[in-house]
Deep mutational scan, measured.
Amino acid sequence: KKIKIKIKVYNPETKEVLELEIEVSEEEAEELAKKLAEELEKKGYKIEEVEI
């Protein structure tokens, strides 16, 4: 079964909002969402919402 992940991120420095969407297997979904959120935060983005 495929799971659709939508991530909306906001960069306070540039006032930019990015929306990302990807489909992955159920097993990958939670781990991938967690890794993406961590990487984006390292780059200065503030995570507003992660929906699985």
Rank of each mutant, 00 (worst) to 15 (best):
A33R: 02
E49Y: 15
E51T: 15
K4V: 05
E39L: 03
K2C: 10
E16V: 11
A33L: 10
K34N: 08
E51C: 14
L20K: 02
I3E: 02
I3P: 03
K35I: 04
K35N: 06
I47L: 02
K42D: 04
I52G: 01
L32N: 03
G44P: 00
E21I: 13
E16I: 15
K15L: 06
V24I: 04
K6T: 04
K15C: 10
I22R: 10
Y10V: 12
P12M: 10
L36T: 03
L20P: 01
P12T: 08
K8M: 02
L20G: 02
I47H: 00
E48G: 03
E27F: 14
L36Y: 07
E21C: 12
I22H: 11
E19H: 13
E23W: 10
V17R: 13
I22C: 11
E30Y: 14
K35Y: 05
I7D: 00
I5S: 00
K8A: 03
I3Q: 08
A29N: 01
I52H: 02
E51R: 10
A29K: 06
S25R: 14
K4H: 13
E26W: 11
K2F: 04
E16D: 08
A29L: 04
V24R: 04
S25M: 11
E39G: 03
K1M: 05
E28M: 14
E28N: 14
E13A: 11
L32E: 10
E49D: 05
I5P: 00
K8I: 08
E13M: 12
K35V: 06
E31M: 06
I52L: 08
E48H: 07
K46N: 09
Y10K: 06
E19K: 15
I3A: 11
T14H: 05
K15S: 08
K34P: 03
I5R: 00
Y10G: 07
I7M: 06
E41P: 01
V9C: 07
K34T: 04
S25P: 15
A33E: 02
Y45E: 13
E16F: 13
E21G: 13
V17W: 04
E39S: 04
I47N: 00
E27N: 09
L32A: 15
G44R: 01
E31P: 12
N11T: 04
E19Q: 11
K42I: 02
Y45N: 15
Y10R: 10
I52F: 09
I47R: 00
K1Y: 11
K43C: 14
K42N: 05
E30M: 06
E48R: 03
E48Y: 09
E26A: 11
E38M: 10
K1S: 10
L20T: 02
E48N: 04
L20D: 01
E38Y: 11
I7S: 00
L36V: 07
